[in-house]
Design a protein around this nucleic acid. Sequence first.
DNA 1: GTCCGGGATT
DNA 2: AATCCCGGAC
Length: 304
Amino acid sequence: MQEEHVDKTREQVRARLAAWWEANARDLPWRFGRTTPWGVLVSEVMSQQTQMSRVVPYWTDWMRTWPDAAALAKASTAEVITAWGRLGYPRRALRLQECARVVADQYGNALPDDHDTLLSLPGIGDYTASAVSSFAFGRRVAVIDTNIRRVLSRVLLGVESRGGSATRAERDLANDALPDDTAKSVIWNQSVMELGAVVCTAKKPMCEVCPVSTCCAFLAAGRPGLGERRTRPRQRFQGTDRQVRGIVLNALRRRHDGGLTAGLPRAEAESLWPDQGQLAACIASLDDDGLIEINKDGSLSLPR
DNA sequence: GTCCGGGATT
DNA sequence: AATCCCGGAC
């Protein structure tokens, strides 16, 4: 009896979300079979910590410049870092290029469609492997990101999902809720994630326009704990190493874009940030990460 | 000005 | 558990 109710609710949620997806899915250029699996991977890596709307122009330019893994594998690292622009977390760009080299060299320029093989590639973790399996290869896999965790937890359980990494219960829920039909499972993943991105947002969900508001356990319960809990520990940016690294890298990017091939003189680098100790540590960490090169005269360059 | 959102790696 | 970035919303 109880299980029957759960099944009916889930069937209703699926049908409504599928209809909503049909009418409201954002027309992103990597959707609806308009790109290759590699193109889907690039979109997922770019979207890992960045809003889709910011990703679109970068993705379009990137794919025009490097349409496949082999093309990216041959690019200079300086070009790759420059093209990554201000998407943030530039190590993602390096890993994507490492990934491209593995795909080009070891997999004949074809992105593997096996989940475990995808997981073994640089920069591809559990989320991205699942997303590519589902969205690019149409396989039946539960995709789990923060949007999906939040939506499933709210709609089906009536509670906020907890911060940090996905719990066992959340993974079980995602697997349990995934439609048996493979084609439907892909739509499900995409529509749940899309709902979380544009309607069922963390802080101010727009329940008035939500297609599943009439069968949402969270809304029925009075949205308990809404906005109380942050999804993760807050990270300041001002004054952090991340800001300093960003400033240094941006200076080198602009130089590269302006056609200057000589390195950034150390004296100019030192004027970028007042705290010389912090600056030196950040320059060293960028060098460690392979994001910059320190020349013999102490000047800085993007890696060739 | 301050806050918010996002996954991989070590 | 800590580290990695940025722009847009307030």
